[in-house]
């Protein structure tokens, strides 16, 4: 068994595939196919592509007959619905439209009336979803799968590799990680978690031999206005950023569940977020605005990766 590493770019992030495989030919074959799966999902759910499922759905908004979606999309919509229900409406894939008001590169806080103008278009409960038929009743409504497709893609790529017979390896899509399996000696992977205030130094390491790890933070898109940090963690009810934790990392059996849980925890804020993760029983790690780390996820102090 030899370790092969394949860096690539997808979903706007640096990504990496690590595989323990007998030889290079097999490794390349598997890596190519797994990476192709990630690119397939990126293409399929990209907001920027005219021919993507997301664009087709969004173009159908206001259309009386609705739109029929494929099986994979249907199951992703079902997942979004569960996330919406379990988070009391905080995890909402209709809230992406808020980016029209919040331009984090402008360093300007939007006017309340601009936010108010968008709120009628937000709300998963306004959709009519009866698989395979999806109906966005208001022209202008938008779905954004960006909140969980990357994590889902990590699961898919990892699962693909397992199918291909890989028993040890790791999929890393811009920090969202899904373990294919532990090292050949059954030891876990040492995975670094990004420091929300210093991208070059990991805030800690965790050991992972199975499952997925996903992080959300206020560092991905934000602006500082008058000394106050406004991050892209937007509450779909108010349209305003949540004054919350700096970052949350969660480990779950599936990367997509880890990602949704960390997103919801961020949206719930510092106190409620941790409490919610405790309730889920998932190992987690949070850093608050004072750079204090809390959580149940066991950390390893080491700089070697």
């Amino acid at each position: 068994m030899e370790l092969f590493t394949y860096p690539f770019k997808a979903m706007g992030s640096p990504c990496e595939l690590r595989l323990y495989v007998e030889n290079k030919i097999i490794a390349e074959h598997i890596a190519n196919d797994a990476i192709a799966e990630v690119h397939r999902l990126e293409k399929k759910y990209s907001r920027y592509r005219e021919d993507s499922v997301t664009s087709n759905i969004n173009n159908s908004a206001g259309n009386k007959s609705g739109i029929e979606v494929d099986n994979e999309t249907a199951l992703l919509l079902n997942y979004a619905q569960v996330g919406y229900e379990q988070s009391m409406g905080l995890f909402d894939i209709t809230s992406g439209i808020l980016r029209k008001a919040w331009d984090f590169r402008s360093n300007k806080i939007p006017k309340q009336k601009d936010i108010d103008a968008l709120l009628p278009f937000i709300g998963w409960n306004k959709l009519h979803w009866q698989a395979p038929l999806l109906h966005l009743p208001l022209a202008g409504m938008e779905l954004d799968f960006g909140g969980y497709v990357k994590e889902y893609a990590a699961d898919v790529a990892a699962n693909y590799c397992r199918h291909a017979g890989v028993t040890g390896g790791l999929v890393n899509l811009g920090g969202d990680i899904c373990v294919i399996g532990p090292h050949p000696d059954a030891s876990p992977w040492k995975v670094g978690i990004r420091h929300p205030r210093n991208p070059t130094v990991p805030m800690s390491f965790v050991m992972l031999s199975t499952g997925g790890l996903a992080s959300s933070g206020d560092y991905e898109r934000f602006m500082m206005v008058d000394g106050i940090r406004y991050a892209h963690i937007l509450n779909p009810h108010t349209g305003w950023p949540v004054n919350s934790l700096a970052s949350t990392s969660v480990v779950a059996e599936q990367c997509v569940v880890a990602g949704t849980s960390s997103t919801i925890a961020m949206l719930k804020g510092e106190e409620n977020g941790s409490a919610w993760l405790e309730e889920l029983g998932l190992p987690y790690l949070c850093m608050n605005q004072n750079e204090e780390i809390t959580g149940t996820l066991k950390r390893v102090r080491s700089i070697e990766f």
């Binding site: 693909y160 599936q254 029983g281």
Partner: peptide, 29 residues
Amino acid sequence: MSKKNNGISPALAALTTAAMALPGISSTV
């Protein structure tokens, strides 16, 4: 995976079930 002694939380169970239904996650070897 650390779980609470009193079993899996309903929210996690719901999310996990929905995730396991996803193609590419659901299919086991």
